[in-house]
């Protein structure tokens, strides 16, 4: 009897812990939402936890089209577009390059494979500050500093370590006999890649798309340094809007802007479910 009631108590303890932990994780998100739906007058007099008395999307509209950074008042929409223009080509290119390189490393044993692999693994851990200044100089030399192509190139460069490791590990797990048979049939490098390897790749391609698109969208440092003022991604613009010291702070607009910036990776996260966890696991393997 006592053992049974102990068991019930233990169950209650487990759920109590989980619910309290969930409340800790959800609280900031809840506060963000309710703040973004209030007017500034209401924010001044009510608790941050209070439900808005007359929810309004005004702050969202301001955040999207007319929030100010310094003298420019075009809202976050510009940053959203820039982030899309950066994310799409950078994701596609880094995955393509990672897949081809991983394929070459796994099946063709090119010379210097060990060097490439070693450098990429180490580079995955090195703080970006180590590379930044020389890369600024190199990109200025070729006229790509402060340009869309430049920031895309930077994302492709720093996507390489994780992408190559991801694809190499996946391809190393495919049966080698398939590849040998294709070689005997006279398949060349690209033919085997396109006809045999790519059709076997969708699971790892999905993981790669999730990893790269969220990483690139969430980047702040590279966007700040390399994109230039015309191509600032959403994260940089968001920080400028919220942390700009001019004028009175519009907390409702700030929170609406923050949710808007978080929306794309959150949607990717919620839609991908277990795939996201798998991507994290794949990323963690590099440790």
């Amino acid at each position: 009897m006592s053992s049974k009631s102990e068991k019930i108590m233990a169950r209650i303890g487990v759920y109590a812990f989980l619910v309290i932990a969930a409340a800790f994780f959800l609280m900031p998100f809840y506060v963000m939402i309710v703040t973004s739906l209030k007017t500034m007058d209401e924010i001044r007099v009510t608790s941050i936890f209070a439900v808005p008395s007359a929810p309004t999307l005004e702050a969202w509209i301001t955040a999207w089209q007319s929030a100010c950074t310094g003298l420019k008042c075009n809202g976050l929409s510009v940053g959203f577009l820039n982030s899309v223009l950066i994310m799409v080509p950078a994701t596609v290119l880094s995955i393509l390059l990672g897949a081809v390189t991983g394929y070459a490393l796994s099946f063709w044993r090119p010379r210097g494979a060990g060097i490439i692999f070693g450098v990429l693994i180490v580079a995955a851990f090195i703080p970006y500050q180590v590379f930044i200044y020389p890369l600024v100089r190199m990109l200025s030399q070729v006229g790509l500093y402060n340009s869309l192509a430049g920031i895309v190139a930077i994302h492709v460069i720093f996507g390489m370590p994780i992408m190559v490791l991801l694809f190499r590990n996946y391809y190393a797990g495919l049966p080698r006999d398939l590849f040998s048979a294709a070689r005997v049939d006279g398949g060349g490098f690209w033919v085997i890649f396109v006809r045999l390897i790519l059709p076997l790749s969708p699971p790892i391609l999905i993981v790669a798309v999730i990893l790269q698109s969220t990483h690139i969208w969430n980047d702040f440092l590279f966007g700040l340094v390399f994109a230039g003022s015309d191509n600032q991604p959403m994260t940089v613009l968001l920080n400028n809007i919220v942390n700009s010291t001019q004028g009175e702070k519009a907390y409702n607009v700030n929170m609406a802007a923050t949710i808007l910036t978080a929306a794309v990776p959150l949607i990717i996260y919620l839609a991908s479910g277990r795939w996201f966890v798998r991507g994290i696991a794949a990323g963690a393997v590099k440790g």
Binding site: A22, N218, N239, P265, Y269
Partner: peptide, 15 residues
């Protein structure tokens, strides 16, 4: 438990 990890550090900082 995992959703904050999907968001940018900038978002986390501002919230």
């Amino acid at each position: 438990f995992l959703y904050p990890y999907a968001m940018s550090f900038v978002v986390t900082g501002l919230v």
